[in-house]
């Protein structure tokens, strides 16, 4: 009965639809990012996304679209900077993320948008997602998932043994760009679900949970996706029935799953 009531609300259906697809995209990319020792890229890009949102609010252009453009450009910038400027690992991320956030604060002040809208972007507003945003999220998330799955062996090879992958004629550079762009898109989509401040959790924690238990790569991908989807669905359920904040619930739940898998792994030994 309760489930029926749960699903009878339009806003919940929209939240579930967008949430589930975005969760899978986040989990898939999370696995690759963690194994590439690049888990913090999500955190960094999320902060830059703030500047995109602010610019959208200022110019009165759909903030989600603006955020997408800014995030993709920044992600490519970080990648180039890492390759060419010889900066240590996450220095580029640290610089871009703080400058992005600073820019966001400036733009938001200019746009006089320190209001509820902005808080939605910072802390997540999945229950307030509108129809056009749902479709944009679902379609983009589906594209991300499809690209990852179709090229999954190649991404796995490059992540595991870059040199050997290169020597076998795989276009490693193309895959780098693809993974970077996919990450940027996914971060922006995740922002819609749990907010700028928590999106990196949605990318990292379910994947980290999956990686605890997986005996092979396929399992890592599947388990991470399952953890992400259950966290989002249960989180929305809690938000609806107990009036918890959806974003916080989703992240805490995924952390609990991580905790369980961490303990399970240790006990199994």
């Amino acid at each position: 009965m309760k489930m029926e009531a749960f699903l009878s609300y339009g806003f919940l259906q929209r939240a579930l639809l967008a949430g589930v697809f975005v969760a899978i995209a986040c989990a898939l990319l999370g696995v690759f990012l963690i194994l590439k020792r690049d888990a913090m890229i999500g955190h960094g890009l999320a902060h830059v996304t703030f500047a995109g949102v602010a610019l959208g609010l200022l110019l009165n252009i759909m903030p989600l679209a603006m955020a997408l453009a800014i995030a993709v450009l920044t992600a490519l910038g970080i990648m180039k900077l890492k390759e060419t400027a010889g900066l240590y690992g996450d220095t580029a991320i640290a610089i871009f993320s703080s400058v992005g956030f600073a820019l966001g604060i400036l733009l938001v002040t200019l746009a006089h948008s320190f209001n509820v809208d902005l808080f939605g972007y910072l802390f997540g507003e999945i229950l307030a997602i509108n129809t056009s945003e749902v479709w944009l999220s679902v379609v983009l998330a589906l594209i991300v998932v499809l690209i990852v799955i179709l090229n999954y062996h190649k991404f796995m090879y490059v992540t595991f043994d870059r040199e050997a992958a290169k020597a076998s004629g795989i276009k490693v550079g193309h895959l780098d760009v693809a993974l970077t762009v996919l990450t940027a898109v996914t971060i922006v989509l995740g922002m819609k679900v749990v907010g700028i401040l928590l999106v990196s959790a949605l990318v990292v924690i379910p994947a980290a949970a999956g990686l605890q238990l997986a005996a092979n790569f396929k399992q890592a991908i599947v388990l991470s996706s399952i953890v992400a989807v259950i966290s989002v669905v249960l989180g929305l359920f809690l938000a609806f029935y107990f009036d918890f904040p959806a974003s916080g619930s989703i992240v805490i739940l995924s952390f609990l799953f991580f905790g369980f898998s961490f303990l399970f792994k240790r006990l199994r030994r």
Partner: peptide, 19 residues
Amino acid sequence: IDPFFPVSVKEVVHMGLLS
């Protein structure tokens, strides 16, 4: 190699087939 990388022997060998 990363000893914690979750990849099976079979998956490693399959990588070789990609080229």
